[in-house]
């Protein structure tokens, strides 16, 4: 059940990335392309969060553990 809802969310984020790529390729001015790139980075953060759920480990949002382990 949880995984089904999260797959639907993954589909919505994929659609968002496709629409953003349309604006990135077509963009009337250069500022439009920059905005599309900005939106792409923001939505990729959400995508990485979802992927780290499916991978089952926190390694994608995993920082600075090595300092205390070693």
């Amino acid at each position: 059940m949880v995984n089904l809802i999260l797959y639907i969310a993954l589909g919505f984020i994929g659609l968002a990335v496709i629409l953003t790529l349309y604006r990135f390729i077509k963009g009337d001015t250069s500022v439009d392309r920059i905005i599309a790139l900005d939106v792409l980075t923001i939505s990729s953060i959400a995508l990485i969060g979802l992927i780290s759920h499916f991978a089952g480990r926190v390694i994608y949002i995993w920082t600075l553990h090595w300092f205390t382990v070693y």
């Binding site: 809802i5 999260l6 639907i8 969310a9 659609l15 604006r23 939106v39 959400a46």
Partner: peptide, 15 residues
């Protein structure tokens, strides 16, 4: 999470 994904989609649609 699903609501957040829908907001991301709406933002891209507005773009």
């Amino acid at each position: 999470t699903l609501i957040g994904a829908i907001f991301l989609f709406l933002g891209a649609l507005g773009l």
